[in-house]
């Protein structure tokens, strides 16, 4: 259990990026009325941004 939770919290920034930041970015894009290129859905763009940001935070240990 401890190992599972340890692993979970190690990758938590990535999960946070996908689980929260992605939908947040998508909601902000929609509110701003910005249509993503190539017919992409706002959520897809949000997941790319949130996932990438969270992934970088896992690797570097920093959000900012």
């Amino acid at each position: 259990m401890r190992r599972i939770l340890g692993g979970l919290f190690r990758i938590m920034p990535l999960l946070f990026g996908l689980g929260f930041l992605g939908p947040l970015v998508a909601q902000l894009l929609t509110l701003a009325g910005w249509a993503p290129p190539w017919g992409l859905a706002p959520l897809a763009v949000g997941m790319v941004i949130g996932g990438a940001w969270g992934g970088v935070a896992v690797l570097t240990g920093r959000w900012l």
Binding site: F16, G19, F20, L31
Partner: peptide, 18 residues
């Protein structure tokens, strides 16, 4: 806390949770 944030986000209320 994270569960609430994630649930809010995936039900279309990310901005409210933020």
């Amino acid at each position: 806390y994270l569960g609430v944030l994630f649930a809010m986000a995936w039900t279309g209320h990310a901005l409210e949770a933020a």
